[in-house]
Amino acid sequence: MKLKKGDLFIIVILVTAVLGWFLKDAIFPDDSSKNAVIKIDGQVYATIPLDKDNERQEIPLTLADNQYMRIVTEKDQIWVEKSTCPDEVCIKTGKISKPGQSIVCLPNKTVIHIEGAEDMDIDDLSV
């Protein structure tokens, strides 16, 4: 079982390649697949895949008490463009794109939350 230098070289490369293949996912998690989930009063209204190739898409929400919201997605981002709520905190939150982020409109009981290769480092969030 005597190995030549060349053999060792090949082995090292192969081992590195195989290990690299398996470690790749751990080091560079695949965050390309993520969904924006729109919930109104706790019920899922829509689930929208957020992808870098997405064209601009408008989601109009007609809500109770004549309230209205316009949610927009483009590329891998989602945001609230228009809302009849009094404080417009949802619009001011701006564009979100990372798993774990969310936009909350309390007056309209609407939540947009991004799910994906989520950062599972935490159990919940103190706001």
């Binding site: 939150t93 701006g94 979100i96 990372k98 774990g100 982020q101 969310s102 936009i103 909350v104 939350h113 991004i114 480092d121 935490i122 159990d123 919940d124 969030l125 103190s126 706001v127």
Partner: peptide, 20 residues
């Protein structure tokens, strides 16, 4: 222990700056 994200006051809801 439970791990709770502490909201980054300058970022959108969900972006945390530490863990408690």
């Amino acid at each position: 222990p439970w791990r709770l994200g502490l909201q980054d006051p300058l970022k959108p809801r969900g972006d945390y700056m530490g863990i408690v």
